[in-house]
């Protein structure tokens, strides 16, 4: 077919999505860029807001906290999601019910999830009650600068793992059974089947999960906002909480927009690296 014709067909398929995405995401985002270049009370563009946030120890700390959080949470969630997907990808009684229960936390308003886990993690709460009943020392959880981030990771993983599991599960069910039979004839054991068939066949769904999971975790903030406000001592001050606080609580929109631009740039860089890493020879483009 001719190039021009193909372009027209593609345009017809793409037009609604492109219009929606540009009108509802990209265009408002350019106004964020615009605001980030205007220092408070100024009408000419400058980099003053960027200079301010990069000299602000609170913002720098939040960048650092976010990166550490991501390095831990993304691999952790993906491994657990993969393990759960492998577990529930079988004909066991009521399997649909179990899958739905594991997925359910993602449908509950995050404000409610945060309250429930905040209560669970209270120093006088039920998790410590279990620890005490088992003869262990009670822990401080959200009230300690050392344990708060770990507690937040537990909460966001409880919310999200079932969601990521679902995408991997869909990928698993798409692997042709014949591939397993072929390697079994060659005498492959369980692990080899997983390594040589399952993982390579999951490359596309896993790319999706890796990228989407990274983006989602970059943008985590409701549990932080509700449970710790970024504390104790800034130990859980993830960047989205910092941005939200600046924009909607402290009323410093211009530095919040500068921080948003920094965030989007950082996520874009990480995501592009991930695309390169997961690219296979037959895929074109990024």
């Amino acid at each position: 077919m001719q190039q021009r014709n193909k372009l027209l067909v593609a345009a017809a398929f793409l037009a609604p999505a492109i219009i929606a995405v540009i009108f509802l995401r990209i265009w408002p985002a350019t106004s964020a860029l615009h605001e980030s270049l205007l220092a408070p009370g100024e009408t000419t563009y400058s980099l003053e807001n960027y200079a301010y946030i990069f000299s602000d120890p609170v913002f720098l700390r939040s960048l650092q906290v976010t990166l550490v959080f991501l390095v831990v949470v993304a691999p952790l969630q993906i491994v657990i999601a993969l393990a759960l997907a492998l577990l529930v990808n079988a004909a066991i009684p009521f399997v649909g019910l179990w899958r739905a229960i594991i997925l359910l936390p993602v449908a509950i308003p995050q404000s409610v999830s945060a309250v429930v886990w905040g209560v669970a993690f209270r120093p006088d709460g039920p998790v410590n009650a279990v620890l005490i009943a088992m003869g262990l020392e009670p822990m401080r959880f959200l009230t300690s600068a050392e344990q708060a981030m770990g507690s937040i990771i537990v909460i966001v993983s409880w919310i999200g793992v079932g969601y990521w599991m679902t995408f991997i599960l869909a990928g698993l069910q798409d692997i042709p059974k014949s591939l397993y039979e072929a390697v079994r004839i060659d005498g492959a054991n369980r692990f080899q089947q997983f390594w040589y068939v399952t993982l390579p066949q999951l490359r596309r769904p896993l790319t999706f999960v890796l990228v989407a999971n990274t983006v989602a975790n970059f943008l985590v903030f409701a549990p932080v906002q509700i449970l710790t406000s970024g504390g104790p001592q800034g130990s859980t001050n993830l960047i989205m909480n910092e941005i939200y606080t600046r924009a909607f609580v402290s009323g410093d929109r211009s530095s919040a927009m500068a921080a948003t631009v920094v965030l989007v740039t950082a996520v874009l860089a990480v995501v592009l690296v991930q695309f390169r890493m997961m690219r296979s020879p037959e895929d074109k483009g990024i």
Binding site: R140, T143, A145, G230, G231, P232, Q233, G251
Partner: peptide, 19 residues
């Protein structure tokens, strides 16, 4: 005030947690 209050609420929370 709002910027001040936001920072102070974090200070009190940190103090309560033993900072």
């Amino acid at each position: 005030f709002v910027a001040f209050e936001t920072v102070m609420n974090r200070v009190f929370s940190d103090l309560r947690n033993g900072a």
